[in-house]
Design a protein around this nucleic acid. Structure first.
Length: 527
DNA sequence: GACCCCCGCCAC
DNA sequence: AAACGTGGCGGGGGTC
């Protein structure tokens, strides 16, 4: 289409294709106009802007490359889950047809409400979320209904059906004809600088950042290649510790993060009645015992401390961790809140382990109410436009600094690996992790060692140097060798644990001899 | 059938 | 009284 004056253009007279070109032109023109305004506002673009632009290359490369899917395993798992789903649905319909005279769709919250709260006359379960309370049929509501014996079979069926349908929706995502899962990364879409991941522009693939660990085994290295995933260890917690050190010269939390096993120590704080021995290895094993569903005590402590770091209340932690409120109040008193909860817990004066946390929250609150913005150590500035005195705004701001710092730290590491290691091929970014593949003929130690070096981002303050160590895993598929479910299943069946996913990721250490041979064909059987 | 919001739920 | 944050997706169920 030639140049046109859009102000005098009769767009109704245009055909669809020409109209789209006009729209495209207008959209581009607006972007250019905005750029012009920004150039007047800033002499030079902020460094973080140039960084975002530099990230386009590695992210586009990941998006184009995609990630090979093991079709055989994927179909086998999907078939097995379909069969199990059919079986459960039959049971569900048998039960519900006896209760009310129609077919209930377990995927419909509306129909479930009618079934549970009208036909069965169970008490309505109110769930509060973001300030509003509403009647719900979510997992939390259903679990509350389990006190009614006659509700139990239904609750268990609904939850199992939901779980399987969720897994199927991931396994049955449409992928490309070359068997590759291609996600679309948006590197400038979030408030914090995290990338987001979604279905690609051609309608295939999906969010690669929320695939549950139990399903990751379907994503594999290309033939002749090996996978490596590098995680930043407890990165957000360490960042909170760093801020407290820099701001208040209080290094206690960072020291704790750096000195040993933070989450096991927190487990000891929350559940002092477990048979702790004082020996690190044994205590970690105790902390890794299953506590609730697939979660170990250690997992729960990890979530509890994470919540508490971000000013989550004992009430919320108790709800999320399924631990009685009193227990969480005591945990928080000892963990960071100290005397703030003294009266309610009746514990008397408590010297908390990490009083820097409330102090950090206080500092953030003061920043928001005076200047209205925060800047991370990587120079990412965010204005907070919410009400300056609202708890909601404060909580966003408290989470912003560590979350954003982690995003930029990981992305800087990702960019460096892309720039300086042509021998690796990036496959994915998972907020505090990256995954790549490299030729099996290369030295694992050399490649992984170099990537770990490049991931190190050093910050300095008053003579103290701060880095977040990376932890590497290697294998041929993205799954874990043994899932927590496998462990639980072996335990209930009183059987020895067998390696169910021999190609999965195992921890890398310098000099490790990974004597495994890549398996061919279908190895993993979902039971 | 396209579109949108709600609900429930997955990740870090 | 309210009660950590950042995201994306699929299905239901409504409207146009």
């Amino acid at each position: 289409m030639p140049w046109v004056d859009t102000s005098t253009l009769d767009r109704k007279a245009l055909n669809s294709s020409d109209n789209q070109q006009v729209y495209c032109g207008l959209d581009s023109a607006v972007t250019v106009e905005v750029l012009g305004e920004l150039r007047q506002l800033f002499n030079q673009p902020p460094a973080i802007y140039n960084f975002e632009r530099a990230l386009q290359a590695p992210y586009l490369e990941m998006m184009q490359r995609g990630w090979l899917v093991d079709e055989l395993s994927r179909r086998a798992a999907s078939t097995m889950l379909r069969e199990r789903l059919e079986h459960l649905l039959q049971k569900f319909h048998l039960l519900t047809s006896a209760i009310c005279d129609r077919t209930i769709n377990p995927a419909s919250p509306k129909q479930l409400k009618e079934l549970l709260y009208d036909s069965m006359r169970l008490p309505e379960q109110q769930i509060s979320f973001k300030g509003t309370r509403r009647v719900s049929t979510n997992r939390e509501a259903l679990e509350k209904l389990e006190v009614y014996l006659y509700a139990r079979p239904l609750v268990s069926l609904i939850l199992s059906i939901r779980d399987i349908e969720k897994q199927l929706s991931v396994l049955e995502t449409e992928i490309d004809s070359d068997s590759r899962f291609r996600t679309s990364y948006n590197i400038a879409g979030t408030e914090t600088g995290r990338p987001s991941s979604s279905e690609n522009a051609f309608g295939t693939g999906g969010n690669a950042q929320n695939i549950s660990p139990a399903l990751r085994f379907v994503l594999i290295a290309d033939p002749g290649m090996r996978l490596c995933q590098i995680d930043l260890e407890q990165v957000e917690a360490r960042d909170v510790g760093w801020f407290e050190g820099v701001l208040f010269d209080d290094w206690r939390f960072l020291n704790a993060c750096e000195s040993g096993d933070l989450h096991t120590n927190n487990s000891k704080l929350i559940w002092p009645e477990l048979p702790w021995t004082g020996r690190a290895g044994e205590d970690r094993k105790i902390a890794e015992r299953l506590f609730y569903r697939d979660f170990s005590y250690r997992d729960m402590a990890k979530r509890g401390s994470h919540l508490s770091n971000y000013s989550g209340t004992a009430w919320t932690a108790s709800r999320a961790l399924k631990v009685p409120l009193g227990i969480m109040e005591e945990f928080q008193a000892r963990y960071c809140r100290g005397r703030a909860v003294e009266q309610r817990t009746g514990l008397g004066a408590i010297e908390p382990a990490y009083p820097g946390h409330p102090r950090y929250w206080q500092w953030v609150s003061q920043q928001i109410q005076t200047i209205g913005w925060l800047t991370t150590p990587f120079g990412r500035k965010r204005h907070f436009f919410g009400r300056q005195d609202s708890g909601e705004t404060l909580r966003e701001a408290i989470a912003y600094l560590p979350q954003s710092t982690t995003a930029d730290r990981m992305n800087l590491g990702l960019w460096r690996c892309w720039k300086y290691m042509p021998e690796i091929q990036l496959l994915g970014q998972g907020f505090d992790s990256i995954t790549f593949q490299f030729d099996e003929g290369l030295s694992v130690d050399k490649v992984v060692g170099r990537a770990l070096e490049l991931i190190r981002v050093e910050l300095k303050h008053a003579g103290r140097s701060y880095i977040v160590p990376g932890e590497a895993k290697i294998g041929w598929n993205w799954g874990v060798v043994v899932t927590p479910e496998d462990v639980a299943r072996a335990k209930t069946a009183n059987k020895r644990l067998s390696r169910l996913n021999p190609d999965g990721l195992i921890k890398w250490k310098p000099g490790i001899k990974d004597s495994r041979q890549r398996a061919t064909g279908l190895k993993r059987i979902m039971t």
